Amino acid sequence: MRNLIAGVTVVTTAAGRKATGMTATSVSSLSASPPSLLVCANQSGSFAALIKEGRPFCVNVLSSSHVELAKTFGSADANKNFDGPEWLRDHDDVPYLVEAKVRFHCKAFQIFPVATHLIVAGTVEEVEFAASSLKALAYSDGRFTTVA
């Protein structure tokens, strides 16, 4: 699995002002009609605890300038603070990254437990794009890289 190259995202959710997020490389399109995607999350994490309640979530696709952010949200011990100017909240109070390459605002419609993870199927409610010149951040073989 280590050799699979994958795009890097930070997926966020919230219950009121309590917000959490995680770095995820297991994000995939599911359907174009209706637009939907899949997110895989470790069941022991704080994201899984909130998403099990059917909370809305946001998939923030990271660019090459977001390596440190990916590392922060990839650590279970990290302080995941959404108070800085790089974060805003959508109409569901879910934090989103202002400078994300792309943002998918979603509503969970099905959650499947599989082994140690949850597979979350979400309907895409809104898509927001950043400047197209940003290079996407990818991860493979234990290293971050970029994709044009």
Rank of each mutant, 00 (worst) to 15 (best):
L62D: 00
Y96R: 02
I111A: 05
A48L: 08
A100S: 15
A78R: 11
T23P: 10
R2L: 08
M22R: 09
R17L: 11
V120E: 06
A6N: 13
V127F: 06
T145I: 09
V11S: 05
D141W: 01
I5S: 12
R89N: 03
I111Q: 04
N3W: 05
T13W: 08
A15Q: 14
C106M: 07
P85G: 10
K101M: 07
V11L: 03
V61I: 15
Q110Y: 11
F82A: 00
L137M: 10
D77M: 04
Q43D: 02
V39D: 00
A14C: 10
G122M: 07
V39I: 15
L62F: 01
V27D: 02
S64N: 14
K107T: 13
A115V: 14
F57A: 01
R89P: 00
S133C: 08
L37D: 11
D92N: 13
H91T: 11
T20E: 02
R2F: 04
V10P: 04
V61H: 06
T146D: 07
V98L: 13
A48E: 07
A121W: 00
T145D: 09
T72Y: 02
V10L: 09
F144R: 05
D93C: 13
V39Q: 00
N60D: 07
Q43T: 14
S29Y: 00
F82P: 00
L134W: 10
S36H: 05
F129P: 04
L37E: 09
A70I: 08
V67R: 15
F73I: 03
V114M: 06
R89C: 00
S44F: 06
A108N: 02
A15E: 15
D92S: 10
I51W: 02
N81E: 08
F109Q: 01
T123E: 14
T20Q: 04
S33G: 03
N42C: 07
Q43N: 05
K101V: 13
V39Y: 00
L50A: 07
K107G: 05
A41N: 06
A138T: 15
T116F: 04
K71T: 15
D90E: 02
A100C: 12
C106P: 03
Q43W: 01
F104S: 02
M22C: 14
S132H: 09
T116V: 11
A76M: 06
A130V: 02
E86W: 06
A19V: 07
G84C: 08
L134R: 13
D92M: 03
H105T: 04
S26T: 11
L4Y: 07
S28I: 02
A121F: 03
K71A: 14
S63Y: 00
G142W: 06
R17P: 00
W87D: 09
T13I: 13
G84W: 11
V61Y: 09
